[in-house]
Design a protein around this nucleic acid. Structure first.
Lengths: 341, 341
DNA sequence: CGCCTCGTCGGAACCGGTTCCACTCACGTC
DNA sequence: GACGTGAGTGGAACCGGTTCCGACGAGGCG
């Protein structure tokens, strides 16, 4: 429990000089700095973050709010954030908040409002006005990732464009009976990620003269492999002319569709083409055509923005995150092919 | 920016009394407490954790070290820990440490050694002597989860028994040509989770008079679905008498095996029985027979132990975590059946 | 009725850093 | 040679709580 006063005494300087020497702020003669550093090393001095943050008001800690840990996208983002934060000397405090329960209010009022974090990164959760106000009022920057928030800097891919792109890929292959496995609430919440991807689908279909509801089918399902499985069974299980292509809202959902197709004896891509969204780690194994996004990199970017807002990056790189959507890329594999005639 | 001195002034008491009233420590008259609480509520007083931890030495923060976020088991454990910690008023600081890189030393020396956390929960990472000593020396309790650590309280299932149980299930079904998809390093590190499961497999095979190496095959692979996929292709892809049953070291690996079997035109369970370990969220969808474990509950338990070590739970429930292995359960589904004759 | 005990409370020290301010001193300039 | 300048340093206040210790009054006991 060596304190800075011990270091100062050992180095023969004042506490003030020791602090300046170790923190790098303020002018200290080179020779003095070396003496102080040597003294600190000798007694194994470790500064108390509590004492520092008490006076500076900075905790060197960023809160991350995330609804799921075990969905691939979120896990990847979290890893990216963690790495970037660690490199910058920040700690990451995790809040796993799915719904708007009492838990959530408690986290905002009790944990985040306290001086436990300097900033907040919210992944895939829509913050309420009150929640945003509560944080901003205390001068804590917020950055949203996935799901644009009004009033706070948001990093997100263009989900509508991605839905459009995926659907157009299927259309270009000659498919006309195309189904969409959408995420829960896609129709009810047009501004959600699911809603925007659905919108892109509808837009492409309409532009191709394929009135949705006529031959296009949309089924909403949970964002998981079992969700894709049961959803696909619903979509393709009944007799009649089946869709020849399926646009799944995420790769995990698409994986479930693979399994359902196998169960139904439908071959891929012969009888059914499947495209997903994400660029999931497993998509190569499935041979899944997908629109890739890069969640790890997105997490890193979110940290960049946060650090800039905290006045760390200062000038440095100008970073063109001026509202431009994050990059995505169509990767064609073996799960999509020309429509059977 | 309301400080406790403001509360005290408003309530007409001293800082000392205000602190006692709000923290619940020390004797305060009921009427005084009510006045202080009313004053605190009125000006929206929020205590500074930095100030409190500076003097008490407690941060109300627990560090969690985890090698992956995106493996189901780890994600589930993390969620369980988060929930339990939050309920107890603790924050969770996440450290995503896979290998023994320089990053890792930095986390231990710079982050954990500082007074940023009160305790550490290490999931599936083997701590070095030095790392353990460094934490214990500073009075920070450590709890290990999955992969027993010498010298620190460890929560873990009995991996050898689980491997035994899974293999015996296949043996009871009459299988004699049984392959094991083991985790990386299973042979090289007999005390690892992978090593112990492999050991259980060998033990069951030997007891059944089936000399490993004769008709039993072991292949080591990455703990993921693609790992299971390529591993299974290796194991079953070449001609000759194939195994009729497969014991996969984890459910995710088993899922990959399903996919590989489909690719090879092998029916399940007709030509190949598959059993996994974990009780993965998706195992029901696959109809996978598995030995379930309960990672969310394990995380909760780890928090219980940590809180006890921090002197929170004090007496309360005696909790029989006296080294007894965590619960597991064999769940038979449609992926295993009698050996073909 | 005197004394002890206990509940209640205030004053003040303290946790361990950071930073403002004043001061010294060497150096360059006119 | 007088003076301004700025680097380098120390003293002390301060961040916002917690806790030790002592004071005080009321009630119980002998």
């Amino acid at each position: 429990m060596a304190a800075i006063s011990d270091v100062a005494r050992l180095a023969g300087v004042s506490k003030a000089t020791a602090s300046r020497a170790l923190s790098g702020r303020g002018a200290v003669a080179d020779e003095t700095r070396r003496r102080v550093e040597a003294a600190a090393a000798e007694i194994g001095f470790i500064a108390s973050p509590a004492a520092a943050s008490l006076v500076t008001g900075r905790t060197m800690n960023v809160g991350v709010i995330i609804p799921f840990v075990n969905r691939w996208f979120f896990g990847e983002v979290l890893e990216g954030i963690e790495r970037a934060l660690l490199a910058a000397g920040y700690d990451l405090t995790l809040y796993n908040l799915a719904d708007h329960g009492p838990e959530r209010a408690r986290v905002f009022d009790f944990f985040l409002a306290r001086k436990r974090v300097d900033a907040v990164i919210a992944i895939g959760v829509d913050l309420s006005e009150r929640e945003i106000a509560s944080l901003e009022q205390r001068g804590k920057p917020i950055v949203a990732l996935g799901g644009a928030e009004a009033g706070v800097p948001s990093l997100t891919i263009d989900d509508r464009a991605v839905g459009l792109l995926a659907t157009e890929h299927l259309l270009h292959l000659g498919h006309t009976r195309i189904a969409h496995l959408a995420g829960t609430g896609a129709a009810a919440m047009p501004n959600s990620v699911h809603g925007r991807r659905r919108h892109g689908f509808l837009e492409a279909m309409t532009a191709a003269g394929l009135a949705p509801g006529g031959r296009a089918h949309i089924h909403e399902t949970e964002m998981s492999m079992p969700g894709g499985y049961t959803g696909t069974l619903q979509l393709l299980g009944h007799p009649g002319r089946r869709p020849t292509a399926l646009f799944a809202v995420s790769d995990e959902v698409a994986f479930g569709a693979f399994r359902a197709a196998e169960h139904l004896g439908i071959t891929i891509p012969g009888e059914l083409s499947i495209i997903g969204i994400d660029g999931h780690e497993y998509s190569e194994m499935f041979g899944l055509t997908t629109v890739e996004q890069y969640p790890g990199e997105q997490g890193r970017l979110a940290v960049d923005v946060v650090l800039r807002l905290l006045g760390e990056g200062e000038e440095a790189d100008p970073l063109p995150d001026s509202g431009a959507p994050l990059p995505t890329r169509l990767v064609v594999r073996s799960s999509t092919t020309s429509a059977p005639r």
